[in-house]
Nucleic acid binder design. Structure first.
Lengths: 226, 226
DNA sequence: AATAAAACTGACCATATGGTCAAAAACCGT
DNA sequence: ACGGTTTTTGACCATATGGTCAGTTTTATT
């Protein structure tokens, strides 16, 4: 995906099958990580390549050597976030037990919200601003993924496993409830005496969401085992 | 440093108790409205006073005559959004019937999401970026409001009217589910064949949220009358 | 009509930004 | 050691931005 470099593929077949030199890899990661943070905190327009470069500990010109334009850098960051989204999406599988499937999916999304809150914020801002970079994802991947899960939910309803509910709007509830903990973490923290949720609090929030959703569609909630 | 306006306070007390002349009012509103749109779409940093002025149909210098700095303009917009938030907050009153109170509050928040989606987006971005302008609101108004509603919910639980649930996380669910329809409207539209939700769809989304939440905390859901 | 005050705006400025480039430095196979 | 290739980066540039200001126009008051 980058410079041709003719036959030189596995020049030095080290222990790892890595395609990029070590320092290059390191720089790229530092830049991407810095970019994720700055984009999340300042938005695409507010982020400056200079600031990102400083955060990454490299001169601005170096950043532009790795990523020609700010937009290219932004797109690369977005792609990584997309991959993470996919990973969570796969946990929503077509198993027989709706309670299990939904609980697992909710947990996966909550964990992502916690572990990748920067990415979640970038994603949210991107969509709020009209998805200038990811419209195709919305129209394709997300749309077909949603359609397939809607079918599963409809089947659950038809089989009498859950109460009738509009599957789309149910999914939106799950997305919003879980992502809220990433996107609005600052607000949640402010209401929590300025402290991030502890592990226990986070678990309780997850349980609250899971219980309300599951019960909300007529599923029995298994008692929390202590 | 300052442009005159020394002792000039309230020059002419006209017949009307209006503080501002007609054209001034009109311009100010046009600028504020344009600002709301541009801030929502580009974020604070991405919005330019030039663009806002063009949207409002006035020269940039005029904008800066009304609002000295971009930040002052932004703060004015935020204040208006805050007022709207307050308005919805008041619908969460301390009535005996949790189902009524919650359903009404959810409806109020959903309506705001629909009618003031730009403001909701600005609010969301502001919080995602660490609430640089509204930290005091979070720490004061929001915190005390939340505390008072938490008390109400706890009373409902104590009275056995609803199932035990963490009130904070329940509130977060309501906020997220309703605001999602504003902040992620673009995504929702994309999944809805590019069309905004019709009145009927919106009503169904509202019903879905209300039903899931109410049933989720052990409340009977009144059948939707057709 | 005359005057003063307020409203408006074109032209301007200092600064910051994304991005370039040429030259230097590090790296490479031979 | 050598020639070529890839990395690295300080200096630079064109542009855009927030904001100013002096001069003009409009409005209000007498």
């Amino acid at each position: 995906m980058d410079s041709g470099k003719s036959g030189v593929s596995e020049s030095a077949v080290n222990c790892q099958p890595q395609k990029k030199s070590k320092p290059r890899q390191k720089n790229e990661e530092a830049i991407l990580s810095a970019a994720e943070k700055v984009f999340a905190e300042l938005g695409f327009a507010g982020a400056t390549t200079n600031l990102i470069a400083r955060h990454a500990g490299v001169p601005k010109a170096t950043l532009h050597y790795y990523f020609q334009t700010k937009e290219e850098l932004y797109r690369t960051v977005i792609k990584k976030i997309f991959a993470i989204w996919l990973q969570a999406a796969e946990t929503f599988d077509d198993c027989d037990d709706p309670a299990d499937a939904l609980a697992r999916y909710i947990r996966a999304k909550m964990n992502i919200s916690r572990e990748h809150s920067l990415g979640s914020k970038i994603w949210a801002q991107e969509i709020m601003q009209g998805a200038p970079q990811i419209q195709d994802f919305l129209d394709q991947t997300l749309k077909s993924w949603t359609a397939s899960r809607v079918k599963i939910i409809e089947r659950w309803i038809a089989e009498g496993k859950i109460d009738p509910v509009n599957p789309d709007y149910l999914l939106y509830m799950i997305w919003s409830a879980t992502q809220h903990h990433a996107d609005f973490a600052h607000q949640i923290n402010s209401l929590n005496d300025g402290q991030p949720l502890s592990d226990e609090q986070f678990e309780e929030a997850l349980q609250t969401i899971t219980n309300v959703i599951l019960r909300g569609i007529g599923l029995p909630v298994k008692p929390v085992d202590e």
